[in-house]
Design a protein around this nucleic acid. Sequence first.
RNA 1: CGGGGCGUAGCUCAGCCGGGUAGAGCGCACGGUUCGGGACCGUGAGGCCGGAGGUUCAAAUCCUCUCGCCCCGACCA
Length: 571
Amino acid sequence: MRWSRIYLYTTREIPADAEVVSHQLMARAGMIRKLAAGIYTYLPLGWRSIKKMMEIVRREMDAAGAVELSMPAIQPAELWQETERWEVFGDLLLRMKDRNERDFCFGPTHEEVITDFVRRDVRSYRQLPFNLYQIQTKFRDEIRPRFGLMRAREFLMKDAYSFHTSEESLAETYEAMRQAYCRVFEDCRLEYTMVEAASGAIGGSGSHEFMVLAETGEDAVVACSNGDYAANTEKAETGGLEPPPAEEPIEMREESTPGATTVAEVTELLGVGPEKLVKTMLYDTDVEPVAVLVRGDREVNEVKLASYLGVNHLQLAGEEKVERFTGAPVGFAGPVALSESVRLIGDESARPLVNFVCGANKADAHYVGVNWDRDVKVGEWADLLLVGAGDPCPRCDGTLELSRGIEVGHIFMLGAKYSKAMECFYSDEKGELHPMEMGCYGLGIGRTVAAAVEQNHDENGIIWPVPLAPFEVLVMSLNPQDDEVRRTADDIYDQLVAEGVDVFYDDRDERPGVKFKDADLIGIPIRVAVGAKSLAEGKVELSLRRDREKHLVAPAEAAARVGDLLAELGA
RNA sequence: CGGGGCGUAGCUCAGCCGGGUAGAGCGCACGGUUCGGGACCGUGAGGCCGGAGGUUCAAAUCCUCUCGCCCCGACCA
């Protein structure tokens, strides 16, 4: 492909709304352009990288026994009402009506659609298991789209769904998918990690996320320094915090703490450490108000809390509600003699505390010397802790480290959640009906490509890993008005094309400086520069985008040497 | 949805506080000089100042409403 023929315009300016480097560089390199919030055009250069990503995914899905199909993007409301997700998804669903006023949505995922047609076709255990996938445009009306392709509203995703007669069979396919995902991200040359994940609104038992590690990642992940545990912080557990030293219970008494509404202020005033405090967090849920007790120096994990309570929505109670439940302004809530209408749940982090401090449910006062059972009874204890760096590993004696990642893949063992709700049954050998066991496996195409840019760039532009590069080789004529230069560059380009090399040719009538800058920006891994200077000595220049080290070779050898370099890069 | 910010040339932005001829850089067109890391000189085109209403002799500028975009938060198969 020649630059003069492709539609490609780079820019020096960073678009005003591009915040993260992948968005900035892909926009500047003429790969993507925003049409509306979270909605992007993939320009020819960007589309080439996207297509490469899709081919890698197809190859691995096919190899793992999945079969490709394509389902509708527009889906009728009735299916979503069967699983109650028409309500659960809320505003995330882009809803629309057809001319007959029937409700539809633009599919954000396809569990309902696939379960619907599978239940029409599949009757017998003999037809199971199978695994179907598609690569398709999805739409989720995110509250806050951002970061270019990393968090778009309209996006490309590979989603696969498997159907089984048993959990064992599901586990087998789940494992095959897990390995296929690892191969995909390895094929892309990305630094990634697999973590245990919270399964969220989609439901199900087991779930893993694939995270590409990057500073700009929106998810926090923890990993044990010994490598035997990694999880999304939304779900991560700890090995249990160090218990406080044993003490004899002392008498509970009230202390005046005027204006001390934060843990820091209370501990300062009373001269105790924050780990001696019990923080009482009041939450509003769809069902009932809840008070969560957590050690003063720690935070509540709201995802764990929502999943423990089995609710979809939950938020910290507002000032008014806090006053209504505790009879005190925000900052003085405590479990002692708290309103009966509030469900009291203790986090395990607070359980071992003795003689602790907590709010007195009245303004400007805290209790000290509080003890469980004697002073306050907690009916429920649960793990609701947000893990932090340095916490003990739940699997070994290592400690947990925090890092950030971009969620590029997520696989779930759904179990029978959808098959039950939608009556997707099969009959077994005895003719008895059972709901099918299901798995689903998502992988963000555009997001992975953006993640690759996050991980592979420098101050001059993108440094594509070969598998995702829009082209593998760039030939540039530095002085196209010079006949010999142009002829030599043409020859090398033609030769590479003839050899089937994935080559791009900057044949534009531009100054060398412009071409070098553009070459760095679009980040094609191998560069062949043909210019009057080196050609006078009978040479052209080969270099890698990654190290920019120049190698002079005779024009006649250029194509062969490019082949060597490609082989070295494992293309 | 709550808090904050921004909509002015194709792009990035000044001008707005304190109302009075609409600007810069980049890009684009033309001419010339250049030609190995985003050249230089000259000339030029290009704007309903997001939209609607209001105040005023006069509005990019002040007021009201509205639409869009961005940031922080809540949310996220």
